[in-house]
């Protein structure tokens, strides 16, 4: 009895260790695949340039001492600070527009049993399928009519063309998971349809809305063509455009600063992503199942 009691946790523990070892072993290739390029970018970002071009030398370590020069260059010799601020501002406004339009739309499509709702919904999703290379020329006209050419506000107007369809779909799925009963109870309590939406449905829709915001944010960061076509002034560019157009001069790649510039926005976004990952997961689950 006593012996068994003492032995059990031990075997449990070794079983746990074995299980962990197996999981880590399984994860290792994935981690290498996903992280090595990032690690490599990080190394490049703090390498001296002369250390990059040593023929035949180990590329992932330092022969010359690491340096912050590339970061310094990024902040003092380019408009990187402006690019970050622009990216933040663009993402904020794009998310705001997206939420303000796709929350009501998603709700209406999911809950209000409207005639033609299905077709309208499909119509909205279909617009996500139209690629940017088809749209940017006609949109240039729109941007110029609004007098937004060469201002980051032009991107605030344009990016919702892909975030709204995506997030409407996402939120529509999400709203379907909210039980009808809560809403009906609220309406019985004297709230109108709008009251029920605001007071009851929205508060339980946090994960869905957060997911939509995260998507708006990351989708906005993946654009290149629109920003290239509409913004040519250095201090108006978002980060991806600024980094890709101003750190390649002629045919010279400023590798270190390019990598630094990418990591400085990519890594914080990854952290934020992770903070909300659980919410995010319940967000997409809610949207897709049901």
């Amino acid at each position: 009895m006593i012996a068994a009691g003492a032995g059990h946790p031990r075997s449990q523990r070794s079983k746990e260790i074995r299980r962990h070892a197996l999981i880590y072993l399984g994860l290792a290739p994935f981690l290498v695949l996903a992280v090595f390029p990032v690690f490599w970018m990080a190394i490049t970002a703090i390498k001296q340039d002369s250390d990059l071009y040593l023929v035949g030398a180990a590329p992932f370590w330092f022969r010359l001492p690491p340096t912050w020069k590339n970061f310094d260059f990024l902040f003092n010799n380019t408009f990187y600070k402006d690019w970050i601020i622009n990216t933040m501002a663009i993402s904020f406004w794009v998310s705001a527009i997206t939420i303000l339009t796709s929350v009501p739309a998603g709700y209406a499509l999911a809950r209000l049993r409207l005639p033609f709702a299905e077709n309208l919904g499909i119509g909205i999703f279909m617009t996500y399928l139209v690629p940017a290379i088809i749209l940017f020329i006609p949109l240039a006209r729109v941007v110029s009519t609004l007098d937004l050419q060469d201002s980051w506000w032009s991107l605030v107007v344009v990016y919702p063309t892909f975030t709204i369809p995506f997030c409407t779909w996402l939120l529509m799925g999400f709203f379907k998971t909210v039980p009808f009963e809560i809403e009906e109870a609220a309406m019985v309590d004297g709230c109108g349809q709008l009251g029920a939406l605001c007071r009851v449905v929205l508060p339980v829709s946090g994960p869905g809305i957060i997911t939509a915001i995260i998507f708006s944010f990351t989708l906005s960061m993946q654009d290149f063509l629109y920003s290239l076509a509409f913004v040519s002034i250095s201090d108006q560019k978002p980060v991806p455009l600024g980094v890709a157009t101003e750190l390649i001069r002629g045919d010279i790649y400023f590798w270190g600063s390019l990598m630094a510039g990418a990591l400085l926005v990519g890594v914080p976004v990854a952290i934020v992503y992770n903070l909300f990952l659980d919410k995010f997961i319940s967000g997409i689950t809610g949207a897709a199942i049901k």
Partner: peptide
Amino acid sequence: RVDHIPHLELPARYAAEFAAGAG
């Protein structure tokens, strides 16, 4: 004011400026 962009990206920008009638 002088703006510089990589030479390969100029045609896209000009197509947009032409479509917009401004630039």
